[in-house]
Simulated assay, not measured.
Amino acid sequence: MVGILLPHYGELSLYFAQSALTSDFIVDVVERWWQGIKGRFPNVRTLLVNQDNGPENSSRRTQYVKRLAAFAVAGGVKVRLACYPPYHSKYNPIERCWGALEQHWNGSVLDSVRRPCGSRGR
């Protein structure tokens, strides 16, 4: 699962993978999210990505950085990565969202896909 949080607006977008999480999936999510939201932010020229620097989205992971760079060029935006140090997830605001979701799901296995009305699968 990948989450994108806009704390100032109180907006959380969740994207679920049907297989293992990969760096390509993460960048696909960022691209799809930005395409859907950029009209609301016509003056934004830089996206700041606060991330946990896990194995899929490490700033040293060549595929991840290559795909983000291609997205930035194609989208006409700068992408800045801000990586939280290991074991400092308590400072990352999205981690509080994960805690709330875990309590809501109460240990349920997420093994099916139900799309909200009006959404299109990709």
Rank of each mutant, 00 (worst) to 15 (best):
S59R: 15
P85M: 11
V79S: 02
E56I: 03
N50A: 10
R80Q: 15
L47S: 01
R67S: 12
P42R: 09
S59I: 14
Q63C: 05
L81N: 07
D52K: 11
Q63H: 06
S58D: 02
T62P: 00
A82E: 10
G76W: 04
V77P: 03
P42H: 08
P86Q: 07
A74Q: 09
Q63N: 11
C83Q: 03
P55R: 14
P86L: 07
V49G: 01
T62K: 15
P42N: 05
K66D: 06
A72F: 09
R80G: 05
V44E: 05
V65L: 06
T46G: 00
R61K: 15
V73F: 05
Q63K: 09
G75S: 15
L48Y: 01
V44M: 04
Q51S: 10
G54N: 11
A72W: 08
N53Y: 02
T62M: 12
C83V: 07
A69N: 12
V65A: 02
Q51T: 05
V49A: 02
K78S: 13
Q63A: 13
Y64D: 00
P86D: 06
A82L: 15
G75P: 00
V79Y: 02
G54Y: 08
V49T: 02
N53V: 10
R45F: 10
V77F: 15
R80I: 15
G75C: 11
N50Q: 06
V79R: 01
R45W: 07
P86T: 09
V77Y: 13
N53L: 08
F41I: 01
L68E: 07
G54T: 12
R40Q: 14
V79C: 09
S58A: 09
V77W: 14
L47F: 02
R60W: 03
V77A: 05
V44D: 02
A82C: 14
R45S: 14
V79W: 03
S58V: 07
A69C: 09
A72P: 03
R40K: 14
V79L: 14
L68P: 03
L81P: 07
N53S: 10
V73C: 05
R45V: 14
A70R: 15
V79I: 15
F71E: 00
P85N: 04
N53G: 06
C83Y: 01
P42Y: 08
K78Q: 14
C83A: 11
A72G: 10
R60Y: 05
S59W: 10
S59P: 09
P42D: 04
A69K: 10
R60F: 03
G76T: 07
L68I: 06
V79T: 06
G54E: 10
V44F: 11
R45K: 15
C83F: 01
A72N: 09
F71G: 00
T46Q: 11
L68A: 03
K66P: 00
P55L: 11
P55S: 14
E56H: 04
N50F: 08
K66I: 02
A70V: 08
G76K: 04
